[in-house]
Amino acid sequence: MNTNENIFDGVTVLELSGRFDATQTRDFKEKIHSLISNEQVYIVLNLKDVAFIDSSALGSIVACLRSLNQANGDIKLANLQDEVRGIFTLTRLSSVFEIFDDVKSAVNSF
């Protein structure tokens, strides 16, 4: 999985691509904790190019949400593909995260 990082209006946008499964969760959590250390606690995950996500990845995003909330931050999701959105709905995690159709809306929601 590749990760690109950009900052818009003080909000960090992480663009993920590829499979998001147990192989990537450690790197992902380390990335988020690195951002928290840099006081970048407003984060948007752009999942446009993520076609596959499993429970390990979901668990890592939930863990990061908890860490960000403790740092008075938040993480919001944008551009979910249908399959990925379906998994969030299936597990009811769609009620935990704010999910937006595009990055701009997600950034503006902070």
Binding site: D54, S55, S56, L58, G59, S60, V62, A63, L65, R66, I87, L90, T91, V96
Partner: peptide
């Protein structure tokens, strides 16, 4: 915000 256990549900 419990982490884990979702695999069985899925």
């Amino acid at each position: 915000f419990k982490v884990g256990g979702l695999g069985i549900l899925i």
